[in-house]
Design a protein around this nucleic acid. Sequence first.
DNA 1: TTGGAATGTCAACAAGGCTGACGTAAATTA
DNA 2: TAATTTACGTCAGCCTTGTTGACATTCCAA
Lengths: 166, 166
Amino acid sequence: MAENSFGGEGLLYLTDEQLRKGIEAMFFAYRGFTADPDRILEGMDYGRAHHRAVHFINRSPGTTVGNLLDILGVTKQSLNRVLRTLFDGGLVEARVGKKDKRERHLYLTEKGRALERELSDAQRARMRAAYRAAGPQAVQGFRTVLEAMMDPEMRRQFQGMKDSGQ
Amino acid sequence: MAENSFGGEGLLYLTDEQLRKGIEAMFFAYRGFTADPDRILEGMDYGRAHHRAVHFINRSPGTTVGNLLDILGVTKQSLNRVLRTLFDGGLVEARVGKKDKRERHLYLTEKGRALERELSDAQRARMRAAYRAAGPQAVQGFRTVLEAMMDPEMRRQFQGMKDSGQ
DNA sequence: TTGGAATGTCAACAAGGCTGACGTAAATTA
DNA sequence: TAATTTACGTCAGCCTTGTTGACATTCCAA
């Protein structure tokens, strides 16, 4: 797909300067990406880490603590602190596994779903606006590049979650 | 550009499900984006915050502390802690402004440039690989969507820096 | 029955954000 | 000229979210 000679338009997009622009675009865009949920969360007893946990529990109800550890890429101690406050706040509940009783399956409560909705509505609104402004072609490219930027393991995680959860 | 009816291919890319995929792609890709510099920095006395400062000083030599505050979006206390260690480590130097003596203009030393090069080489390598794999069309779309995702102020910052620095 | 897996937890620490308060020099303005 | 504002630095303390290390429990599986 990336045919070309050189000179004309060629590999212009691979110059150091263009790559630097891409790097900075990532930096600034990520700020926007997290800005709305952060705003909603400030003042609440939760933060970005809780948002992430709630997000992935919502998208894969019944997921286990171990699964979540793999996806979030943090230590169990760190995740545990987050989960504990979510339990205490009544946003998440854990059910002992039927098959394997060592596992804890995680579910959002109604309250948890409400917060998740609030956060993801805000985040989706920004994403939707960006998608709409950019158009379907651009969106396709956006997704392609992001996927190519992931670590292979993360890419597998991501692709594995393609359609539904679990 | 974003013409369409509905049904066929239509606005598929604006469904909540597609938007959620975009959100998760952002999340996982950003991890990859920061992974290489983070790896290089671990063990050194510097972290991600130092990387950011060094990056923007490199791209705009002579930039002032105030400029950097705007771009990085942190408090002066936070930035100051970072700059102090960069001064101490001999990576950055500050020169009193010629016109306005209240301002400090920031420059990388040779040592600072060396670290910057090491970090940005790694980050660019990943970006280059992703760009190459995705192709120029996709790269165009990637940049378009990212730009649309920024806060307006940040977008101005970003576009203002389009070509050179300062 | 025994080793390893899945989970929880205590303690201590580090990075990198934040607020508030205060100080100083230099520019600007009344 | 005097007062105010700007640009910057700094001290102190706090919060969130990440880390390591150590240890306990429960349960699956060979």
